[in-house]
Every structure is written in C-alpha cells, then in structure tokens.
C-alpha cells in the first residue's frame, strides 16, 4: 500500500526521483566547497584549473585565523562545561520537583530557542556596551551559554524522564547515600543524555554567528565572526578551506556519536 514500497506501484518512482534530487541538493554546497577548497583559482573557477593546498596554508599562516579558531575552541569548551553545570541540576529540578509553575519554568529554560537570535544579540549588545564588556571572553561565553542551555536542559530532561526514580531509591535502600546513588547510579545511567547535552552545547557555541557578531571586537573574534567579516568583503577561497575543515569536523563528530550510540545503546 502507500506505506509499502513494493506494493506502491509506479508512484514510487516519483518518490525515488524527489529523494535523489533532495539528497543531491543537500550534498551540493557541502561537496562543492570541499572540492573548491583544493582548487587553485583565486576566482573560484569550477572545475578548477589546478589543485593546491595553498588556501589551507593561508589559514595557518594568518595569525588572525589561528587566533579566531583558538578563541572559538576556548569559548565553546567553557560554554559546554557551564551548560552542563547549570543544565544538569536544572533538569533534576524540572523532572523531580513538584512545585507550582514547573511547566512554566521548563518553557522559560527553552525560551532562548524561540526568541530570534538577532533580538538576543542586540539586547546583549546594548547590555555589554553599558558594562564595557564588549569584545571580552566573558561576553562571548555568556551570550553563547544562553543559546546552549536549552539544548543541555532538553537532552538531560529527556534522559532523566526515561530513568525510573525508583532505581535511585533501590540504590539508597541497598545502603548508598543519596550522593552515592546519584553519582554511581543515576548519572551513569543517563550518561548518554549528558554526553548529547555536552555535544550540542559545544556545537551551539562553536557555530554561533549572530551573537558573536555583536559581541566581537577587532581584537577578539570567534571563527564564525572572522568568516562573517571576511565573507562580507569578498568570496576568498580561504573561506572554502576553513569551511572544509569545519565539514570534516562535523563528519568526525557524527562518526564518534554513531559509535558511542551503538556502544551504549541500551
């Protein structure tokens, strides 16, 4: 029938066609950039007249690119740690707590996902200017943490909801203290959720463009901000090589995630 491929009749070829075209559409820019980054043409000719690694060399020979990468790593890592530190206890309160307005609090914690980033960006821009924090590490971390926190809360709440609280009670009745039960039983049991929370928090910060644009100063820029300012001037192939590195990173993360999920799948 309509949900059975073999019995669907000729209509399935239409679906196949749309499927293949969509897959190509989704792959097109990703594959194209990767190919372009090795092309020798300054003017992004395609197919390239020759092949080269000079655009990659250009990244690492330019201290502005290296510094922005380093800044992004530091910010994203700090955001990841703080996002778990704030999100984990918050998720416990949301799942275990029985206080009035619990759903409202839940909605509040995920609201940064709903408020358009541009609004958060200009609000924070005004805010950090007032306190002279613009272009500081703290400003980047605070801004990115706002958008990372919902991911952390959602991931941990989901896995904590799937964890039966009586298992923790069983540990306590077995003689474990409350803290032992949480650290030896509950947290290990929801570790996949915590791992996802950390990963998404890191990525949320690592990829954040808009907040970065408004938090940055000429002296402190994250990688996306550096890409943005460069892109607004010209379409240099250096961006292609930076993008390709980012795509490679995405693939590595996808493989690690798939591997971990398979290994820890319950």
């Amino acid at each position: 029938m309509l949900l059975n491929l073999n019995r669907m009749g000729p209509g399935r070829y239409v679906l196949y066609g749309i499927g293949v075209l969509t897959a190509l559409f989704l792959l097109l820019p990703v594959a194209f950039i990767a190919a372009l980054s090795f092309g020798s043409s300054q003017w992004l000719q395609f197919p390239p007249p020759g092949w080269t690694l000079k655009w990659y060399a250009a990244i690492f020979n330019d201290p502005r690119w290296v510094e922005s990468i380093w800044t992004s790593v530091k910010v994203a890592f700090t955001v990841m740690v703080l996002s778990i530190a704030l999100g984990l206890p918050a998720a416990f309160a949301l799942v275990r707590g029985k206080f009035p307005g619990r759903t409202l609090l839940h909605a509040f914690f995920i609201s940064p996902m709903i408020v358009p980033v541009i609004i958060l960006a200009i609000a924070l821009y005004v805010f950090v200017l007032k306190f002279g924090l613009n272009g500081t590490f703290i400003a980047f971390v605070a801004a990115h943490l706002i958008v990372a926190l919902p991911f952390s809360v959602i991931c941990i709440v989901n896995s904590l909801e799937g964890f039966d609280e009586s298992t923790e009670k069983a540990a306590i009745v077995c003689g474990a203290t409350k803290a032992e039960a949480i650290f030896r039983v509950t947290l290990p049991a929801i570790r996949l959720g915590i791992f996802s929370a950390a990963l998404f928090s890191f990525l949320a910060s690592w990829d954040e463009v808009v907040l970065g644009i408004f938090m940055a100063s000429p002296t402190l820029q994250t990688l996306p901000v550096r890409m943005w300012t460069t892109l607004r001037q010209d379409l240099t192939p250096v961006i292609a090589s930076v993008s390709t590195l980012l795509i490679a990173l995405t693939i590595v993360i996808m493989i690690i995630t798939a591997f971990l999920r398979r290994r820890y799948a319950r």
Partner: peptide
C-alpha cells in the same frame, strides 16, 4: 551532515554556486 555543517560554510557554498 547538512544540518550540522557550519551555517556560514553552507551559506558560503550557495553564494559561490
């Protein structure tokens, strides 16, 4: 892959294309 690739990288790809 397309979803997790950096937003600017994807947009850059379309700018060039």
């Amino acid at each position: 892959l397309s979803m997790w690739t950096n937003l600017l990288a994807r947009t850059y790809g379309w700018m060039v294309l």
